[in-house]
Design a protein around this nucleic acid. Structure first.
Lengths: 110, 110
DNA sequence: TTCTATCATCGTAATATTACAATAAGAAAG
DNA sequence: CTTTCTTATTGTAATATTACGATGATAGAA
């Protein structure tokens, strides 16, 4: 139905899935890489670096903001974007824990 | 348009986004946790642990398989699922690199 | 005020996702 | 062969996502 049975899953799984969803589009990965590349905030010109229209980029930025991964502070005519440190480290921790919990399959079936 | 401008993005971003997409639903995260919990493969009964119908679970398993994160080997009447070690470690590496490349914002704007 | 630059939002169209019941496909049991 | 058990696939409906042009909103320049 295109609708997810949100209430049926564990909070930790929902949180991780939400972060993953934010990363689930190459444009958003590209935006994050642009923000990661510089140590300071970036004002505007994200649009110039992507092959997408201004409105589409703005929409992706909104999704990243709603996921909490980035912040956008108004600075006069422009908007200053940067990674949200807390959410970023939270997402990193959840991902790390998930991926690190793997141990090689003991059986011979695979 | 619901369609992604695939050709316009870097391969690394596409790969990371594809892995992230596989993790972008709580049911798939839950499935992966079930597989991670045991050191051996698990035959069937994933459906019993989730609040979803058999066909829906099967569809999620298919997506995880297509993303490469899991394998399913036929074992008589049942199917043996387990994490695909190579893809898992590849995804882990890409995620780790991405998250680790963050350094605190130097400026005062955020 | 008026113009311009920058970013957000709205409206819309195309496509994708999520979910389930029903059905199919395959292997083992009887 | 027929039945049963297990998983995959098909069909369908509801909702979500992706993308862009057009329009709004706001701040600074002229």
């Amino acid at each position: 139905m295109g609708i997810t049975k949100t209430e049926a899953f564990k909070a930790a799984d929902l949180t991780l899935a939400a972060y993953a969803k934010a990363l689930a589009h190459p444009a958003r990965v590209a935006i994050l890489r642009i923000l990661l590349e510089r140590s300071s905030c970036i004002c505007g010109d994200i649009v110039d670096e992507l092959p997408l229209s201004q409105s589409t980029v703005s929409q992706h930025l909104k999704e990243l903001k709603e996921a909490g991964l980035i912040k956008g502070d108004i600075d006069g005519k422009k908007v200053c974007y940067c990674i949200d440190e807390n959410a970023w480290k939270h997402a990193q921790l959840l991902m790390q824990k998930m991926f690190a919990s793997y141990t090689s399959c003991g059986t011979s079936c695979c």
